[in-house]
């Protein structure tokens, strides 16, 4: 398991990356909805989103709708590549014959 990206290979962050990878291209998910889908506390989600953002895997944007701040997140291009690589590596570990 030495090859697995340590930023993604952690339960909370893997779940965040997987959820964001399920969005159609060009879409972003709001923080509260992401929190609801992942059933994580706001603090926990915030910590891990920041780590993913620092790694350049997730693009976090803050905007205002009226006076209400909205935070949205989406995979960055780099994050999508890293997630695809991670998924391929995990598949290869499960079935080495399919390793490319």
């Amino acid at each position: 398991m030495a090859d697995l990206d340590p930023v993604i290979h952690a339960q909370a962050r893997l779940r965040i990356m997987a959820a964001l990878s399920g969005l159609p291209d060009g879409d972003r998910m709001t923080f509260p909805r992401l929190q609801q889908i992942l059933d994580m506390t706001a603090g926990n989600l915030s910590v891990h989103l920041t780590k993913l953002e620092q790694a350049g895997y997730v693009d976090v944007a803050k905007s205002f709708r009226g006076r209400t701040p909205t935070t949205t997140a989406a995979l960055s291009a780099r994050g999508r590549v890293a997630f695809d690589d991670y998924t391929a590596a995990v598949r290869a570990l499960l079935d080495p014959s399919k390793e490319s």
Binding site: M1, H9, A10, Q11, L14, A19, G22
Partner: peptide
């Protein structure tokens, strides 16, 4: 491999894959 924090890695590749499928389906 050194974890970057206290967030535990998935127990096995199978569990990783299961987590990925679960969250992708929830978003779908």
């Amino acid at each position: 491999m050194t974890p970057v924090d206290d967030d535990a890695p998935p127990a096995s590749p199978a569990e990783s894959l299961a987590l990925i499928r679960q969250e992708q389906a929830a978003v779908a």
